[in-house]
């Protein structure tokens, strides 16, 4: 009877998470977009040609973070520039990683949610989230669920995110001690990581003074033992020709 209407370009602009997941359920072809720093490259190079997109930049609740006492809950749409500017004191590892993402222009747009959903092994946000034991919050029309970061990544560009789901937030425990993020690339700026490393130290357990040694001696000896043990297990794991 009626002929199909020509495909109409659609750009969905939800204002709330509820609306976003409902739209995604109704329009599974719609590609979610926030900062666009990955997706738009693919679109510009004709590697992707979405007939519909779901814009998350208008969802105010995704662009907020909240102090939850011993952790910070970061909305998936908070750009890296704000993580660096606003969260360096409580999440130094993540803030350091955020500062190495792309350029100022990229950090004004790119988000942790996009980093997670893309699940690239070069994602700068991932090492500090893994080192601190963060939790990923995911929403769909069926409800919300929480996934420990250690169970989120399934492989290069593969994650626990299912069709119809959106990453809505990441809860990151506040630093209990010093944290480090190191990234190797061809220069200091605008670099996709060749490899990267994050460390979060929890120094809550303190060595004691007693008849067998002072706390200072124990601290020093532990550092020597830890460095030696790490070098040895690394060498053992990467030996080219096992004896």
């Amino acid at each position: 009877m009626s002929t199909a209407a020509p495909a109409r370009p659609a750009f969905h602009r939800p204002a709330a998470v509820d609306e976003a997941v409902r739209l995604l359920a109704e329009h599974p072809e719609a590609v979610p977009v926030a900062g666009g720093t990955d997706l738009m490259v693919a679109v510009n190079y004709r590697l992707a040609r979405p007939e519909a997109m779901l814009d998350l930049t208008g969802v105010a609740e995704l662009r907020e973070w909240a102090d939850e006492g011993d952790a910070v809950r970061i909305g998936s749409g908070v750009p890296y520039a704000r993580i660096t500017a606003e969260l360096a004191a409580v999440l130094p590892g993540l803030a350091a990683a955020a500062r190495t993402v792309g350029s100022p222009q990229i950090r004004n747009r790119g988000t942790l949610g996009g980093n997670l959903a893309t699940a690239s092994p070069a994602g700068d946000g991932h090492p500090p989230l893994l080192a601190t034991g963060a939790t990923v919050e995911i929403a769909s029309a069926a409800g919300a669920r929480r996934v420990p970061i250690g169970e989120f990544f399934l492989g290069p560009k593969r994650s626990a995110l299912r069709p119809g789901e959106l990453v809505t937030a990441v809860t990151v425990p506040k630093a209990a001690g010093p944290q480090q993020f190191l990234k190797v690339g061809t220069r200091n700026a605008m670099v996709i990581a060749v490899c990267s490393f994050a460390l979060a130290l929890d120094p809550a357990a303190r060595p004691i003074d007693d008849v067998r040694g002072t706390a200072d001696y124990r601290r020093h000896a532990l550092a020597v033992c830890a460095a030696r043990a790490l070098r040895r297990v690394w060498a053992a794991a990467h030996e080219r020709s096992p004896r």
């Binding site: 750009f11 602009r13 977009v33 900062g35 666009g36 720093t37 738009m40 490259v41 679109v43 510009n44 997109m53 814009d55 930049t57 100022p104 222009q105 990229i106 004004n108 747009r109």
Partner: peptide, 11 residues
């Protein structure tokens, strides 16, 4: 500051 090439106009 943003790269205009990475912003969808509809955003």
């Amino acid at each position: 500051p943003v790269c205009a090439c990475l912003v969808a106009t509809a955003q």
